[in-house]
Amino acid sequence: MLEAFNAVLNRDLRLAMRRRGDWVNPLVFFVIVISLFPLGVGPDTELLRQIAPGIIWVASLLATLLASETLFRADFDDGSLEQLVLSSQPLSVLVLAKVLAHWLITGLPLLFLSPLVAVVLQLQGRSIPALMASLLLGTLTLSLVAAIGAALTVGLRKGGVLLALLVLPLFIPVLIFGSSSVLAVEGGFPVQAHLSMLGALFLLSLALAPLAIAASLRIIYE
C-alpha cells in the first residue's frame, strides 16, 4: 500500500518536473490577482493593510481552484485514471498520493510566495508567520476539498465553471479561519484558536475527502 502511494507520488512529481506550466501558471495567477486589488480599490496603505488578509486568502482560494481542475484531467484523458481505479490497492490511498503531489506542486509554492505579497500589501512583519501557518493548513484542506469537485467533474466536457460552483461554497470555512488568523495577529490578539480550527478542518478533510474522491472516481466511468 505504501509502495503504491509512493509510486503515484513519485510519478506525479516527476511529471510536474517535466511540464513546468502546470505549477508555474497558478503561481503567476496568484500574483496577478493580488496586484489587481490595489488597482481596484486604490493605493491607500491603511485600507490595503486592513483588507490584505482577505485578499491573500481569496487569491489562494482561486489559485487552488484553478490548479485543481487539472488534477485528474490528464490521467482521465490518457486512460491511466482507469488503471488507478482498477488497481487492487485502496483507491483512497492512491488519490491521497495524487492530492499530496498536487499540493506540493501548486500549494506549497504559494506558501513561499506569501511573505512577498504580504509585504506588498503592507501587512506587518509579525503577521507573516501566522499567514504562512494558516496557508499551510488551509491550502492542504483546500486541495483535498477541491479534489472532490475535480473528481466529480473530470468526466464532463465543461467541468471548469461547474467545479467552481461546487467547490467555492465549501471553501468558505477555510477562508474565514484563514483570514481571521492573520487579522488576529494584526489586531494583537492570540492566534492559536484560529489555527486550531484550521488544523481541525484539515484533519477532518484528510479523513473524509479521500473516501469521497475515490467514490466519485468510481462513478464517472458508469
Binding site: N6, R11, R14, D78, G79, E82, S87
Partner: peptide, 23 residues
C-alpha cells in the same frame, strides 16, 4: 482503448510505475 501511458515518461518509467502499483 486508451494506452494508459504517460507521454512524458519513458517506457521503463511507465512500466516501473505499473509494477509498483500492482505490487
Amino acid at each position: 482503448h486508451a494506452d494508459a501511458i504517460k507521454l512524458d515518461l519513458t517506457p521503463r518509467e511507465n512500466l516501473a510505475f505499473y509494477a509498483s502499483l500492482s505490487n
